[in-house]
């Protein structure tokens, strides 16, 4: 099935990991992603935030078919890629590229920089001549700010920031339409992180990239993303335009996350009231019944322990899954 929509569309994606398999162990399921829907148009960035274990990375793996979903569809430029055979998917895959967290660990230490960046071309465009391939590699290196004389060097000769530029060059050499950045700047030093964020912005403008930007750092997400989605135990609890979300967060979890971010201004930080959010993330293997956030929520009501709240569109266009928000609207 195709729709006219350009860019990425994900509809009700669910991913489950079977765990504890073995003759004497109970078969358990970890529902890592539950009915997540999103869309990203070319030139736009969707930020996905949440704490460790909320399903951010599994979502990325599901979109790239690195993990088999047990429900939902993923469409790229209107074409469903969920039903494709692996062979058919191979023709779509160059359109979708990923940048990882640990730049050095994601580069083969025994390959030279030029060969690392050329590898996607060798796999996906074997018909290219050597000189054409070299030209594309040189162009990708220039785009990410690597000097031509670095092409013959090995990854260990680079700092983390430069290594991440190599990782980004490898991701854009096929001129993809979608870039998935999974904590792509988290391991970088502050001064280098800013360089890479600015680089991603520039590349998005030049190449019209749709970017799925996964991060635990809310300040970074506010900087780079046009829209933001908040995940908790694999479910979307809030999804809104960037400015709406940060100016007027509605879900108590989003409020707690934003309220926990430290400011570099000591006058603000010293009087910073800590949000009252109890405990820690419950086990995703045995999630609480009802709203997944009910064990920590400062506003919890009896209904929250019984019924899963639906994701409801709010008057300002944001989507929020919270019984208390709905009750306040009705009142």
């Amino acid at each position: 099935m195709t729709t006219g929509m350009e860019g990425l569309e994900v509809d009700a994606l669910s991913i489950t990991y079977p765990i504890g398999q073995g003759p004497f162990r109970p078969r358990l399921e970890l529902k890592a992603v539950r009915e997540v829907s999103l869309s990203i148009a070319p030139g736009k960035t969707l930020g996905v935030v949440g704490e460790s274990g909320c399903g951010k990375s599994t979502l990325a793996r599901g979109i790239l078919r690195l993990q088999r979903p047990d429900g939902g569809t993923v469409r790229w430029n209107g074409q469903s890629i969920s039903d494709l055979t692996d062979d058919e998917f191979r023709h779509v895959r160059p359109e979708m590229q990923m940048v990882f967290q640990d730049p050095l660990a994601s580069l083969n230490p025994r390959m030279r920089v030029a060969d690392i960046i050329a590898e996607p071309l060798v796999t996906h465009r074997p018909e290219l001549s050597g000189s054409k391939r070299q030209a594309l590699v040189a162009k990708a290196m220039e785009r990410v700010g690597l000097l031509p004389d670095m092409a013959r060097r090995f990854p260990h000769e680079f700092s983390g920031g430069q290594a991440q530029r190599i990782g980004i060059a490898r991701a854009i050499v096929l001129e993809p339409g979608l870039l998935i950045c999974d904590e792509a700047v988290s391991a970088l030093d502050v001064s280098i992180r800013a360089q890479v964020l600015v680089l991603l912005e520039e590349l998005q403008q030049t190449l019209g990239l749709a970017i799925l930007f996964i991060s635990h750092d809310l300040a970074v997400v506010r900087y780079i993303a046009h829209e933001v989605m908040v995940l908790y135990l694999g479910r979307v609890v809030e999804h809104a335009e960037r400015d709406t979300l940060f100016a007027n967060p509605k879900h108590p979890y989003t409020q707690a996350l934003i309220g926990s971010v430290l400011s570099k201004d000591p006058e603000i930080e010293r009087s910073h009231e800590v949000p009252r959010i109890g405990g820690e993330l419950p086990s995703p293997i045995d999630p609480p019944s009802g709203c997944p956030f009910n064990t920590r929520c400062p506003l919890v009501q009896p209904i929250c322990r019984q019924t899963m709240p639906a994701l409801v569109v709010q008057p300002d266009g944001s989507q929020v899954a919270c019984h208390v928000v709905e009750a306040q609207k009705a009142a």
Binding site: A194, L218, A219, R222, S263, D265
Partner: peptide
């Protein structure tokens, strides 16, 4: 180089 939620959004200057 550090974006700050408590401050207005401005262009980063790496």
């Amino acid at each position: 180089s550090m974006p700050d939620l408590a401050a207005p959004l401005t262009q980063l200057q790496p």
